[in-house]
């Protein structure tokens, strides 16, 4: 039982560290998309390991916490995908450091747009 407690506290500490780093990342990153990266990555592992840690501290809750972790793993990427797609549709362009690396999605969208205009005519 003691060992379960240690694992629980260890997971919770790891989780809080990652949640803190996620917050720091949101402050430091230059634009929306990179902030989204920090927000989704660090906070998924942060939230997952904090909740699992609680499951280890209270073994009768373990199955429930595991289900919550699975839900987070499904829902978190969906919401961040929706945010990224939505902001790109709203003409929020990503910050690009290197000129060689472009925005493939923008080109594809423009193509689609042209095709649609042709069809309309």
């Amino acid at each position: 039982m003691q060992i379960l407690n240690y694992i629980g506290y260890f997971l919770i500490s790891i989780g809080t560290i990652f949640l803190f780093l996620g917050g720091l990342g949101i402050l430091r990153m230059p634009d929306f998309y990179t902030r989204l990266q920090a927000g989704t990555k660090a906070s998924t592992l942060g939230a997952m390991s904090t909740i699992l840690g609680i499951g280890f501290l209270q073994p009768e809750w373990f199955v429930k916490t595991f289900i919550i972790v699975v839900f987070i793993a499904i829902a978190n990427p969906l919401s961040s995908h929706a945010l990224a797609r939505g902001s790109h549709k709203a003409k929020q362009m990503p910050f690009l450091k290197d000129e060689k690396i472009g925005d493939a999605y923008k080109e594809e969208e423009e193509k689609l747009h042209k095709n649609q205009k042709k069809e309309d005519k």
């Binding site: 990342g25 430091r28 990153m29 925005d103």
Partner: peptide
């Protein structure tokens, strides 16, 4: 998570984003 955490901690913020 460790990769992103490393980038966030690094004072130079070594990113090179693109789609």
């Amino acid at each position: 998570n460790i990769d992103v955490a490393k980038i966030v901690i690094n004072p130079k913020l070594p990113i090179n984003p693109g789609i």
